[in-house]
Amino acid sequence: MNRTRHLRVDRISCTGQGLCAELLPELIDLDEWGYPVLKDRTVPGHLRAHARRAVAACPRLALRTDRDRP
């Protein structure tokens, strides 16, 4: 049940709103145009709730967490 989760960005849907980086700065940076740069795809256990919040906050639904492959 407690398998690791990986962040995935749908790059076509993403419009660089940047909310994900506000909510999950530990794993997500923004480039100079406001588009996300994943510092690490793997979500550590203690950031899981934050990751969930970041996924829920994306207005384009472009951020997801996958259970399996990175």
Partner: peptide
């Protein structure tokens, strides 16, 4: 939030919440 309002004190996610 659709117009990307950015309040100084809270993050933009605050508007969404």
């Amino acid at each position: 939030s659709g117009g990307r309002a950015a309040p100084r004190r809270t993050g933009r996610f605050g508007i969404g919440l």
